[in-house]
Write a protein that binds this DNA or RNA. Structure first.
Length: 415
RNA sequence: CGGGGCGUAAUAUAGUGGUAGUAUAUAUGCUUUGGGAGCAUACAGUCCGAGUUCGAUUCUCGGCGCCCCGACCA
């Protein structure tokens, strides 16, 4: 992409009411734009990050047999009345159409997925399986806050699994646990993210969350450094020891809940009569699990965790582009421009649309500042200086280290 | 939802019961070009409604919006 064609721009200052680090940096860098409290547009740069996060999640869930689908956000009242949540769920957005029919804007999809799979599920031979989607969720938060960390509209990956018995659920539950660990590793959050024992809310006694440590978090967790697991403050009174090693040495930290996994068991299969025939022909209720992970919140978390005084510092796996190619004086120096174009084409030929080419007619300082703000992992500069040496200058955004390499050697930065 | 704060240009800010100023951004011209370049010119603003007043951006009331703390939060 040529940066001169970007319809978005960076800005020196964030709107004064954006106090949270993630929103401030993401807005300044041109990744998101706020429409109203807790509701944001994802601009081309931010959308690329979001899609990269989604693709990592998608790849890992597909590996364990997850089947991707997409369910409606507009959901009939009747489904929600069946579980009693039409009246009890206070974050539910309700809309009425011309004929007076009432609908909910989906905050989650148990009420939809259960009758959906019921249309196909008959026998124990059909079990187990799991489905998932990436979808915009709507929750009428009493108070949206912290930029894209707690919005009223956000992107959620929600997965649901269906089993013949609890043992089978437990097996898959562990598979998803392990998969989440891999996902957060690939997202660059592995070292900061802890599986956390937490309350089950209205679903079950306990659940498990994945919590990323940062002062910007709204949760408090107690980490057992021996086992790399944590306990949420909400259950620390009843769960005083580490569930793995029974140790009592904890480190208190603030954290963001980036994922959670639940055993639903029959909580939703019961009200919808989701059953299957077992080997003896008897009807049994299907056992369920559900597994959430929010790509938009992950994006905010990464912005929050990986940033320095100059701006964002994206992990390479989720960066909007891998390379930021910057020409200095290219608008008036044909040699520079030609070399930049040559490099631009070469990288795109090798690894595709992974290079942002800053071909704008701006001062070096302005371009460098923008590049730092956007946080693209590798900055390549082409100027009269580099032409003289016949090398490319590559700067690592994270470490600040600068290296002069040939076009051929640039390939070591490809992955 | 309770408490608090704040609404002046695209952004950040100053100020005033009587003509609203600065910086950035934007446009044009000239000069610049390795860490947010310089000069000149131009464009651009008081959240909405009511009240008080000769006159309200300013004071009063109401609304709307945004942020923060708390409560809430699958």
């Amino acid at each position: 992409m040529r940066q001169s064609r970007f319809f978005t721009k960076t800005r020196k200052e964030a709107p004064k009411d954006e106090v949270s680090n993630n929103a401030s940096l993401l807005i300044r860098g041109g990744f998101i734009d706020k429409l109203q409290a807790g509701v944001y547009s994802y601009l081309p740069l931010g959308f690329r990050v979001l899609k990269k996060i989604e693709n990592i999640i998608r790849e890992e869930l597909n590996k364990v047999g997850g089947q991707e689908l997409l369910m409606p956000a507009l959901q009939p009242k009747e489904n929600w009345q069946k579980t009693g949540r039409w009246d009890s769920l206070d974050v539910l957005y309700k809309v009425t159409d011309l004929s007076g029919r009432e609908n909910a804007l989906g905050p989650t999809h148990e009420e939809i997925v259960v009758p959906l799979v019921g249309n196909f599920l008959n026998s124990y031979k059909d079990l187990p399986f799991s489905v998932y989607q990436f979808q915009t969720k709507f929750r009428m938060e009493a108070r949206a806050k912290s930029g894209i960390l707690r919005g009223r509209e956000f992107v959620m990956k929600d997965m649901y699994s269906f089993h013949a018995n609890e043992d089978d659920l437990k097996l898959f539950y562990q598979v998803v646990w392990d998969t989440y660990v891999k996902i957060f590793d690939r997202l660059g959050l592995g070292k900061l993210t802890y599986p956390t024992f937490a309350s089950g809310g209205s679903f079950s006694k306990y659940s498990h969350e994945f919590q990323t440590v940062t002062p910007a978090g709204e949760d408090t967790i107690y980490i057992c450094d021996d086992c790399k697991v944590a306990i949420n403050k909400e259950i620390i009174e009843e769960q005083k020891v580490c569930p793995k090693c029974s140790g009592q040495k904890f480190r208190e930290e603030k954290s963001i809940e980036v994922g959670n996994i639940f055993e639903l068991k029959t909580k939703f299969s019961a009200p919808f009569g989701l059953t299957y025939k077992d080997e003896s022909g008897n009807s049994k209720e299907v056992i369920m699990g559900c597994y959430g992970l929010g790509p938009s919140r992950v994006m905010g978390t990464i912005a929050e965790v990986f940033a320095d005084k100059n701006g964002l510092v994206w992990p390479a796996n989720v960066a909007p582009y891998r390379f930021h190619l910057i020409e200095l004086d290219g608008s008036s120096n044909d040699d520079v421009r030609n070399e930049a174009l040559k490099t631009y084409d070469a990288i795109r030929k090798d690894i595709g649309d992974e290079v942002l080419f800053d071909d704008r007619d701006l001062s070096a300082g302005a371009k460098f500042a923008d590049s730092d703000l956007m946080g693209i992992p590798y900055r390549i500069v082409i100027s009269k200086k580099t032409l003289d040496s016949k090398m490319l200058e590559v700067k690592d955004r994270k470490t600040g280290k600068i290296e002069m390499v040939s076009m051929e050697d640039l390939k070591k930065y490809y992955d």
